[in-house]
Write a protein that binds this DNA or RNA. Structure first.
Ligand SMILES: [Mn+2]
Ligand SMILES: [Mn+2]
Ligand SMILES: [Zn+2]
Ligand SMILES: [Zn+2]
Lengths: 151, 151
DNA sequence: TCCTTATTGAAAATGTTTTTCATTTTCATT
DNA sequence: AATGAAAATGAAAAACATTTTCAATAAGGA
């Protein structure tokens, strides 16, 4: 599954007239599999394992290319706003572990009523929304006992 | 109302053992009233009108102090993740105009059901959420006719 | 294999935020 | 009102993150 997804990304890259290169393959392979949002340096460190002469500049450039193709997207967290993760499929939002950073998409939110009400009350015409849940993933729950913030 | 709110901020500052200074007054006055999220340079430019010898470093430092006191908070937007706005009162979320940047808080979202479901499905224990609506404010609607992104 | 051109990595440039430090200002105490 | 300790300030330097420049390299069609 990972292999075919990697191939899909590379084919898309090719279709758009980009060349398939060693550095790009290394970055695609790792981004396809990543279950944490990664910042450019994270990507750099991981990519260098597969492609040792990788330059950090190429990481920036490749993330931009993948982002333009809609394959990865930027993720904002309180401490780091320049993280990247495979893009959402359709209408999905992120759930991120505040301890280890593990990220998962979810879908099925319904803000229609809320948006309609706020639209009325504020006079804004609402174009989009941004929703992100923070929590502790299963493997981090034993490690941390923290207070829960409701609603 | 603005005057008393400014005073409240300054008193809080004083209570916490900080000194009330010219630069801080200028920044507090402008942040109390701001209806747009402002980045440090925005704050700098505006504060210099009232306090011409203001240094940019002081802006950074003062925003941090106000943020530590819970009086302002950092706002993330697609193009600029280091913007500051007066802090939410209780459980509020932001509505921001994608054209002019006008910001308004709203409350009354209820994600309880959603959170419970996602919690079940994912195994995460959910601690908090981050919700932001983007749209066009009343005065920007005539200017731009844009496609609407649903739900 | 050859050739054109996109891509690459190093280095330099740029832009932002933080640190350092001598000077100024605040404000509690005379 | 004058004094003095400590906090705050602004200029300059340093540290960081990101982008640009450019000569060398590599991709992939002919
Ligand atoms: Mn949604
Ligand atoms: Mn952000
Ligand atoms: Zn975790
Ligand atoms: Zn507007």
């Amino acid at each position: 599954m990972t292999v075919t997804e990697t191939e899909r990304w590379l084919e898309l890259l090719e279709q758009k007239g980009s060349r398939i290169t060693g550095p790009r393959k290394a970055i695609v392979e790792l981004m396809v599999d990543a279950d944490h949002a990664l910042n450019p340096v994270d990507v750099f460190d991981r990519a260098r394992v597969k492609y040792p002469k990788m330059g950090l500049v190429t990481v920036y450039r490749t993330l931009e290319v993948l982002s333009d193709l809609g394959l990865v997207e930027r993720v904002h967290q309180a401490d780091d706003c320049h993280m990247y993760l495979r893009a959402a499929q359709g209408h999905e939002h992120l759930l991120i572990c505040s301890c280890c950073g593990k990220a998962a998409y979810f879908s099925g939110d319904d803000l229609g009523m809320l948006i309609q009400r706020i639209s009325m009350e504020s006079g804004f015409s609402i174009q989009g929304h941004w929703l992100q849940l923070q929590g502790l993933c299963q493997s981090c729950q034993p490690k941390k006992i923290q207070t829960q913030q409701g609603e």
